[in-house]
Design a protein around this nucleic acid. Sequence first.
DNA 1: AAGTTTATTGACTCGTCAATCAACAAAAAG
DNA 2: CTTTTTGTTGATTGACGAGTCAATAAACTT
Lengths: 193, 193
Amino acid sequence: MPKLGAEPIRRAALVKATIETVGEAGSLEVTVAQIARRAGMSSALAHHYFGSKEQIFLAAMRSILTLYGAEVRGALATAQDPESRLRAIVAASFAAGSFRRETISAWLNFYVLAQTNAEAHRLLRVYQRRLRSNLRHDLRVLVGPRAEAVARGLGAMIDGVYIRAALADGAPDRRYALDIVTEYLDRELEGTP
Amino acid sequence: MPKLGAEPIRRAALVKATIETVGEAGSLEVTVAQIARRAGMSSALAHHYFGSKEQIFLAAMRSILTLYGAEVRGALATAQDPESRLRAIVAASFAAGSFRRETISAWLNFYVLAQTNAEAHRLLRVYQRRLRSNLRHDLRVLVGPRAEAVARGLGAMIDGVYIRAALADGAPDRRYALDIVTEYLDRELEGTP
DNA sequence: AAGTTTATTGACTCGTCAATCAACAAAAAG
DNA sequence: CTTTTTGTTGATTGACGAGTCAATAAACTT
């Protein structure tokens, strides 16, 4: 019973199901059939819309990065001064929308995918570059020549906290994660106007 | 032509080949046959000694963690005061023996494995706990009540730098990696006796 | 020398899964 | 109302890969 205009709905459902399935399995070794079933359709339809499993993964990854990007942009919208912008960026990394169990696990797996897949690699690079550029921009005002180093450190620490959260048992603790990074940031901003 | 006492040699060869194969492929989706071929034997023999692919991976992971542990212990041997001990631990994380392309990539993949596999999970937890305990021990003397937070931060940052190195193109840059973490450590130790 | 243990592999089984295809259905276009 | 477009799936194909097994052979034991 074909309702027209199904494509975007089906695609979105598949992307959502992919993140959930990969997140739950904690691995990219999930079958298209599993994903499709979770999204309420046959595996043939999944192939019909995405062409290949690889493309499904990439779409899911894009979705995660897009969500994250939106989260950052949203947080930056209300911040005025460099320091609150900086804190907003960091906080956005651990926002409720992104810092969920399946998303974190999927994120880690996409990191692995980026080792093999050129497009995944590219996407991750864009994310890293943008994050670092954002951080550096505000850090320059606050810590001058140290900006570059601190931006790198913050970026690395955020990633580190993420993958550690993937391994923690129980629901991921946003406050805890944020505290670790904030402690670092506080220390770096100490004694700065 | 069975030379007796082959078992430990074969096992070691398989472990080495596993790390190389996983590292090169950037994925756990490698076949036992690939690993075995690289180790110069048939896949049947690999199964004979390890029983399953899973066990091969776990042995490889143990090997990586053991090497890392040795590296830390070695570095600690010559350090006397808390600060140099601390720096030794951090430096050991990026020592030439561990901070190699395939090892880093394998490490990242084992991180993923730990999501699925209980034993891998356990191994990683032991590593994390020991690292944090080591760091905390020396940090207590230097930064007092801040020790816990800084230990967490350092641990997270080390992991973060690692996975980023897995994605960097070209040979992993030890100096660069170490600088990022050292900058953080310096800052935390600033103004401390 | 006969028997046992250790080393080793080619061939095979059995399951899984990505991808394709043929066919069917409903809506839209003409 | 017939043709085309869009949606949808069950069934099938073809490949691949983990794990098993039977067989072979060298060393070691008694």
